[in-house]
Amino acid sequence: MSFVFYVVAALTLAGALSAVLLKNLVHCALAVSIAFAGLALFFLQLDAEFVGFAQFLVYVGAVAILVVFAILLTRGSETPKKTEIFSRTWLTGLAVAGAIFAVPAWAVLQAAPWMIHTTEKPAVTVQEIGNALMGRYVLPLEIVALLLTAALIGAVIVAMHEKEGRNS
């Protein structure tokens, strides 16, 4: 465990916690993009450069902008009223989340001494990733392309105005 690991872990967890806890939704979007950036740094640290930069582009770039747009379009940026920002059943949710955390944490701590650990750095070039995507993983790639097209059309149709439907 290096010093960098602890710094990035603190950054990521602080971003995630404040995204969940803050009151103003715009601040939440900012905090969650910090958490996404911290995860991208984790990927870079784990020698998965391609996935790290894809994470930067997709999450810190696209998803954060999308979240900000949704917040502004639903007037979520207005300062929340005196009503609670948490649901009425927040205690149950917190208990479930704590239990869900306890199980894998216990399992990881139990299994830590026997864990696999390959020390040598995997030398993966982007060319190899491209070859794998065009060779062994070409069918999943095509399915993802279809899914992204369907999601694009679906999101536009769902969020579109429905004036014609209301008039008829």
């Binding site: 969940v20 979520g76 920002i85 948490f86």
Partner: peptide, 8 residues
């Protein structure tokens, strides 16, 4: 599980 706003 705990937040009220759908975006959160």
């Amino acid at each position: 599980l705990t937040r009220r706003n759908a975006i959160l």
